[in-house]
Design a protein around this nucleic acid. Structure first.
Length: 867
RNA sequence: GCGAAAGUGGCGGAACUGGCAGACGCGCCGGACUUAGGAUCCGGUAGCCGAAAGGCUUUGGGGGUUCGACUCCCCCCUUUCGCACCA
């Protein structure tokens, strides 16, 4: 061996891995599989060490599992569609395809220089027709099943840019690009009916026991299941007197003067989870967008004034919701509804805090038991009726400071008075069903997924609009619907695709008449919802993937990526998996068995970003220290899920450690190397036995740290301990400890010493190889192991060897360690107790005192209590 | 406001199931080897007292359970993240 020149080793081994197709795999039913995946990358151009950390984590896992005998699938690909490339095109004129492919080429080079062990033969890019063809295929399957549908919906619209904006592109109510105030528009949009799977997606969360609890909780909240009831409040005529209302009709207020017809067939439906409080429902609140609002407007004495107030709410609500807090406001429609349980008339108000898109867009106001309703009632002087008693005293409505939301015993609740909630809810719902005034219902916060984008750089939606036949699917045989080349990007106007007549004008597949192609493209989250399945069978031109390939490879055993995808990508993927299961392509429910959310890398306390100018480019580090030092450092600095602060000094330290390992291997290679492992075992000295113990203890710890606990930082520190031990051991041999500049002297060592060292150094090189693969390959080769690491096997732990022959037993007296006994291992508790009490140091503390208690604990440890 | 996670030397972090707090690394200090050392090897390094042996204190703060608490329970403080009128 020679001086450590990592840059040369990187090159040498990377070329060898590529030419030998070292990481390409095929399904093999005889071998256990392991599917290791990192979230694929958006090709932004340059990966910084923050991105790269994730790939290294996955690579450590993949390389470890290979050595552990698994058939490891470790692929990579590109989430290649998306807005940034199109925006860049608008700015610079470079076609998105050109810039995307350039970026992919550069980033791929970066990952290869890091020595990440990807099966590049399975690489995919979502912007390629042979990939997005199957976005379209899946879309059509969903269309056939009614899971893809069109409806009008409200979207963010920038009047200046003439385009739809995603929620995250609206910054404080204004367009992120030009600063124009965003307005809403109703547009026909395509949706995926993810709500059809809401309950299943929720239940499935319970099976994800190898996911971070945090992510599971976030998904659970996002789905937001609520059990309750949908109840009808019939609308009454406005001439009926309102019980308990303090408001008087005000002739000066045009809104309150209403017409007097009553229509008993009309009702306002509300959704509530607290039917037990219904006797306290003293008003009804409508969202400003509620359908009934338009009718009330028309029927009011002064529709123009009424409409103005509603419009103010609708606008204000929108602004406020984007910026945060809004003051609860409302106004009386002048109309009344009938509380279906009490039969009493309650006023109907319009309130700015009632959400149109949740439940029925209307609620019953129970001010005594809901804080929001309470605030509203106080502000407008609406009556408060207390109906659920959870404390000893019934508060007087006038003196209540806040609503009481706790469950308790029902009071003032007619036939239900005296019953306990929440158990009474079931009966109340049943009664409502019997009398036809309502029914039990489950509501979800989750909404259907709007997938239409009025953008160019995405998957065309495979639909044709025909005047005669309506919405028609593009036949499967005609897939893919390819993106036409668009020469220039203005960023203005409708969907860019609408400006390409050859694309838009088609014949209807059903009737052959003239028709218009759909010009929206799909949300790029569609692309990422199934890419992990495509990796199982990336060249399939007939189907997204074959069922057989996924039967072997899926589900993904280990998936890692940023926590920012905790909801969207991971929820959509779980949804797609179920849809494809129902289509008949898959046989399982959950795509990702184990999930790791890796922490970000900070520089100067901030997340790395180009705009902040604080990115650390991995290439700079590679030039200076080589790939392995960077890899090792990033793994050593903290556990993977933790955020870390980048440190050049820390990287330097990892480089020094690799040098230290290198020198050790160099120092001993000639003496211990070669084919055939010398045995070690019999008639060892104490030092030799101790080194063996350390070797096996390290194997145990490193294996568990990587495979079970995913504490890669402590795995590395265990390896460092072993290296320290090896230096100390070497010091006592004829060779002495490795020193720089001194060639290894040919000294003779005991065969046992050679054997013990060989075992330790082989194990060290193998276990360091997932972290520092290039250095490890070279050392493995220098030690005379045939066939490279690709043919090596992870060292196995022998508990017999690791078992200590003597142990140090601390003795605590009144909780403080006062002595340490060195005793042979395996003594009984009684023997330990006896030895402890006989120890001189212990006796100085027990002399003249009463021994109250002696506890011998596993560990072992002796705890003595004296008075 | 609600919910979750976290708080340990000068710094990053260890401590697995309630059992020796501070592994490992960075930094710093000392020694060796050297023309030289910013290389390398060896040693030291939580704080206070002490020449040393040793003792006392110490895991954000305060209380509790226990023979024993970084770990479990209660209250408080700080930080980070998530949700934020979902009826």
């Amino acid at each position: 061996m020679a001086d450590y020149r990592p840059q040369q080793l990187d090159k040498k081994w990377q070329q060898l891995w590529t030419s030998s197709l070292a990481f390409e795999v095929e399904a093999d039913a005889k071998r256990p599989k392991y599917y290791c995946l990192e979230m694929f990358a958006y090709p932004s151009g340059h990966a910084h060490v923050g991105h790269v950390r994730n790939y290294i984590i996955g690579d450590v896992m993949a390389r470890t599992k290979r050595l552990r005998g698994y058939n490891v699938l470790h692929p990579f690909g590109w989430d290649a569609f998306g807005l940034p490339a199109e925006n860049a095109a608008i700015k610079t004129g470079t076609h998105p395809e050109t810039s995307t492919l350039d970026n992919i080429a550069h980033m791929k080079g970066q990952l290869q220089r890091l020595g990440i062990s990807y099966a590049w033969g399975r690489e995919i890019a979502t912007c390629q027709p042979d990939y997005y063809k199957f976005n379209q295929w899946i879309f059509l399957k969903m269309f056939e099943r009614g899971l893809a549908y069109r409806k009008r919906s409200t979207v963010n619209w920038c009047p200046s840019c003439q385009t739809v904006l995603a929620n995250e592109q609206v910054v404080e109510g204004a367009c992120w690009r030009c600063g124009t105030t965003v307005v809403t528009r109703d547009l026909e949009q395509w949706f995926f009916r993810i709500t059809a799977y809401a309950d299943e997606l929720l239940k499935g969360l319970d099976t994800l026991d190898a996911w971070p609890e945090k992510v599971v909780v976030m998904q659970r909240n996002w789905i937001g299941r609520s059990e309750g009831a949908r109840l009808e409040f019939p609308i009454a005529g406005a001439d009926t007197k309102v019980r308990g209302a303090r408001l008087q009709a005000d002739p000066a207020d045009p809104v309150r003067g209403v017409r007097l017809e009553a229509d008993p067939t009309d009702a306002i439906e509300v959704f509530t989870t607290r039917i037990d409080t219904i006797y306290g429902a003293t008003f009804v609140l409508l969202a400003p967008e509620h359908q009934m609002v338009d009718r009330f407007t028309a029927e009011s004495r002064d529709p123009a004034a009424f409409r103005a107030r509603v419009a103010k709410f609708r606008a204000l609500d929108r602004q406020a919701r984007l910026t945060g807090e809004i003051e609860k406001e409302g106004f009386d429609t002048g109309r009344k509804a009938i509380n279906p349980f009490t039969g009493e008339l309650v006023p109907i108000w319009i309130a700015n805090f009632v959400l149109a898109e949740y439940g029925t867009g209307a609620i019953m106001g129970v001010p005594a038991h809901d804080q929001r309703d309470f605030e509203f009632a106080r502000k407008y002087g609406l009556p408060i009726t207390f109906v659920v008693q959870s404390a000893a005293e019934v508060p007087a409505p006038d003196s209540m400071q806040e609503a009481v939301s706790a469950y308790g015993r029902l009071v003032n609740s007619g036939e239900y008075t005296g019953e306990e909630s929440p158990s009474i809810k079931t009966r109340m719902i049943a009664d409502a069903e019997k009398t036809g005034i309502g029914k039990g219902e489950v509501q979800y916060r989750l909404k259907d997924w709007g997938v239409s984008r009025q953008r160019y750089w995405g998957t065309p939606i495979p639909i044709i609009h025909c005047l005669k036949d309506g919405t028609v699917a593009v036949p499967y045989a005609q897939l893919p619907v390819e993106l036409p080349k668009v020469p220039s990007f203005s960023g203005r106007g409708d969907s860019p695709l609408a400006q390409v007549p050859e694309f838009v004008n088609v014949t209807c597949p059903t009737c052959g008449g003239p028709a218009r192609r759909e010009t929206d493209t799909m949300d790029t989250f569609v692309d990422s919802s199934w890419y992990f399945l495509r990796f199982c069978d990336p060249k399939n031109s007939e189907l997204p993937f074959s069922a057989a390939s996924t039967v072997y490879w899926m589900p993904v055993d280990f998936y890692s990526g940023g926590v920012e995808h905790a909801i969207l990508h991971l929820l959509y993927s779980r949804f797609f998996t179920r849809v494809l299961r129902d289509v008949g392509l898959l046989t399982f429910d959950e795509p990702f068995t184990r999930l790791l959310t890796q922490g970000m890398v900070l520089k100067g306390g901030a997340v790395m970003s180009k705009s902040k100018g604080n990115v650390v480019d991995p290439d700079d580090m590679l030039t200076k220290y080589g790939a392995d030092a960077l890899r090792l450092y990033v793994m050593f600095v903290a556990p993977p899920e933790k955020e870390v602060e980048w440190s050049d000094a820390g990287l330097e330290g990892s480089f020094r450690f690799l040098l230290r390992v290198w020198r050790l291997a160099d120092h001993w290679a000639e003496t211990i190397g070669g084919e055939g492992i010398p045995t070690c075992g019999d008639d060892c000295t104490g030092a030799e036995r101790a080194l063996r113990r350390k070797t096996h203890e390290t194997i145990r710890r490193v294996t568990a740290d990587i495979e079970e606990r995913m504490h890669l930082n402590t795995a590395v520190s265990s390896l460092m301990e072993l290296v320290n031990e090896l230096y100390a051991f070497s010091e006592q041999t004829a060779h002495g400890a490795p020193r720089r500049g001194e060639p290894p002297v040919a000294c003779t060592e005991r065969t046992q010493t050679v054997g013990v060292l060989r075992e330790a150094i082989d194990a060290l090189v193998l276990m360091i190889s997932p972290f520092a693969p290039h250095t490890a390959e070279e050392m493995w080769y220098a030690l005379g192991n045939a066939g490279g690491l690709a043919r090596a096997a992870w060292p196995s732990f022998d508990p017999e060897v690791a078992r200590a022959t003597e142990v140090v037993v601390p003795v605590q007296i009144n909780g403080k360690v006062r002595a340490r006994l060195t005793v042979e291992a395996g003594l009984s508790d009684d023997e330990l107790r006896e030895r402890a009490l006989a120890d001189a140091a212990v006796r100085t503390h027990t002399e003249g005192r009463t021994i109250r208690k002696v506890v011998v604990a596993k560990g072992p440890l002796v705890s003595v209590v004296v008075a």
